[in-house]
Design a protein around this nucleic acid. Sequence first.
DNA 1: GACCTTCTCACCTACGTGTTAAGC
DNA 2: TCGCTTAACACGTAGGTGAGAAGG
Lengths: 205, 205
Amino acid sequence: SELEAGSEEGDASKREMKAILEEKELWSSFEELTNEMIVTKSGRRMFPVLKVRVSGLDPNAMYSILLDFVAADRNRWKYVNGEWIPGGKPEPQSPSCVYIHPESPNFGAHWMKATIAFSKVKLSNKMNGGGQILLNSLHKYEPRVHIVKVGGPQKMISSFAFPETKFIAVTAYQNEEITTLKIKHNPFAKAFLDAKESQGLVFSP
Amino acid sequence: SELEAGSEEGDASKREMKAILEEKELWSSFEELTNEMIVTKSGRRMFPVLKVRVSGLDPNAMYSILLDFVAADRNRWKYVNGEWIPGGKPEPQSPSCVYIHPESPNFGAHWMKATIAFSKVKLSNKMNGGGQILLNSLHKYEPRVHIVKVGGPQKMISSFAFPETKFIAVTAYQNEEITTLKIKHNPFAKAFLDAKESQGLVFSP
DNA sequence: GACCTTCTCACCTACGTGTTAAGC
DNA sequence: TCGCTTAACACGTAGGTGAGAAGG
């Protein structure tokens, strides 16, 4: 039965590896088009979902995992004739608020045992008290993850940025290829996938 | 503006106090009838939901909050002619598995800042690996909450039982007054409330 | 047969999507 | 006008109810 348990773990590991590769390809296909994320007053989830794996933590120490969004530049962007162009006048950028992963705080062992998904973070263009992250519409951002040791005297922080997950915050999609790609992969947009498929507008590579 | 903030906190506190009293009355009305909780293979949520408030913790220390179910006696119960009667032969009872509140572990400050609800615990009559709690159908249980200090050397545990939340685990409701009360207060049973109301079978006191 | 359990079902809650038209 | 934002909407996902028939 130990052997069985071992092979089950192996399968789980293979499945996770495959899922990670698929996620990476998904982000890449959005990055190629210049990714966009909707922001709304009440907050909109990200798609794709940002997922990270961590290792090297002390299994018995306590950590919180944080997410914020770094302004990639000081420009306001504009979608003109099918491409994004930076606006003329740079504007001052304040750092975004920080989103605390809802499983925080937790043991190093917990964070290391599975992929950590930020599926519930909500992006907003208005500040309204909830757990939403305030972003400036039509500005470009790069997600960044922080690992903070808590509960003890040491306040060590490690930070990691993910360039392939950069996006421009928008109140409505500008590039319709982005819209199509979102509809194709986000299960919550299935209604629109069905509509497009019946018109023959979605193909697989 | 400090005054405004103060009065907002006061309103929030009043709302919470009212909610707590309503919860207590809800549990009491089920207790009077002898409460029943459905158990299924895949696990069934409790209704009403067990909610507790805690105080006196060290705000900066780390705790996990646990829930288990103590066998109230060694009998198997039977619903005959509108009342629950204990079976003849006492049986050995093993303690139930423990449910870890999903916000665990967390700071004392976190646990004390709001009511803690066990809304997601699932009761089952089969063991199947998930986070469900295994109970024996037709046996009586009393919910019990544990506060465990974690992350440090001290392993202090405090335990609290809640006699008014005792119930008999069942695979189908026996007392139809229990069914009516569940339908009346559980939003997820709204379909059946509508049906009963259109027949004039549900009245308010 | 009597009792208990299991499964499928219709009907909800709750909320995540892009669309569309209206607003500014 | 034009560009951007908002709110209502239809249509999904995801999953929590007891009812009722079927199974053991």
